[in-house]
């Protein structure tokens, strides 16, 4: 039997005695997550803006697809990326399997539909206000998208946060394509899963507390930035 209080206090001791191993795991988690969110925003923001602001054949299908893909099962994505990157897969020669890059690819696939679908909604609402003005000004498609993304940037911070939340908490896909290799592809979520199964609950809980703290801090910083910017200049 274990006492929750004892494990909790030992977890905090582990955090306070911050060691190199912990740093490595946290740093890799942040690297993978932030890279995936960055790439997802790079793809998802313009894609979402395009779908939100323009009418074209297949727009309805694309919207349904993006919305459906928001709920992509991580293990399915992990399996798909695994098949693509495995030695016999089409991208096998790149030898990316069990590397942080493979984990970034898997998370990007998971997060991009979230960013694109939410961006579509934000941009569609804003475009409803701007459409006639933009048409009157004779704006080209590129200028429209750029202006919409710029003017919606504070709402889009929340979109990026949703993507960050999905990526940072993700375990199934990164476990499959990363392999949870110590000092190579071990991140917070996979370590929590591993250490829990080994009965090393103190370390698992310590990482859980850290994961939660990071999520809260990132959200708080972004929301504070957004609120102050909106208050200051862009009501």
């Amino acid at each position: 039997m274990f006492s929750f209080g004892d494990i909790m206090s030992e977890a905090f001791v582990l955090i306070l005695n911050w060691d190199r191993n912990l740093s490595e795991i946290v740093a890799l988690s942040l690297r993978v997550t932030l890279s995936a969110v960055f790439l997802s925003c790079l793809i998802g923001l313009p894609l979402g803006a395009l779908v939100g602001a323009f009418r074209f054949p297949g727009r309805g299908i694309l919207t349904v697809l993006l919305n459906a893909l928001m709920g992509l099962p991580p293990v399915v994505v992990g399996l798909f990326v695994y098949l693509m990157l495995s030695a016999s897969g089409p991208l096998g020669p790149l030898q990316l399997l069990y590397t942080p890059l493979a984990m970034i690819i898997a998370q990007t696939i998971l997060v991009t539909p979230i960013v694109a679908a939410l961006t579509k909604q934000v941009v569609e609402d804003l475009h409803g206000e701007y459409a006639e003005q933009f048409a009157s000004m004779g704006l080209r498609a590129y200028d429209r998208i750029a202006a919409l993304l710029w003017d919606a940037r504070y709402s889009l911070m929340t979109v990026a946060l949703a993507g960050f939340g999905r990526a940072v908490a993700e375990v199934g896909a990164v476990l499959i394509v990363g392999g949870n290799i110590n000092h190579v592809t071990r991140v917070m979520t996979t370590t929590i899963a591993l250490e829990t199964s080994k009965g090393n609950l103190e370390l698992a809980l310590a990482l859980g507390v850290l994961l939660l703290s990071i999520a809260v801090i990132v959200n708080a910083v972004v929301m504070a930035l957004r609120a102050s910017a909106v208050r200051a200049a862009y009501a």
């Binding site: 804003l126 206000e129 701007y130 003005q133 009157s136 000004m137 202006a147 003017d151 200049a233 862009y234």
Partner: peptide, 14 residues
């Protein structure tokens, strides 16, 4: 050509 609408459309900028 340009147009001014009955309800002005202001971009979310200064």
């Amino acid at each position: 050509q340009s147009m001014v609408f009955q309800r002005p459309v202001m971009l979310r900028r200064s």
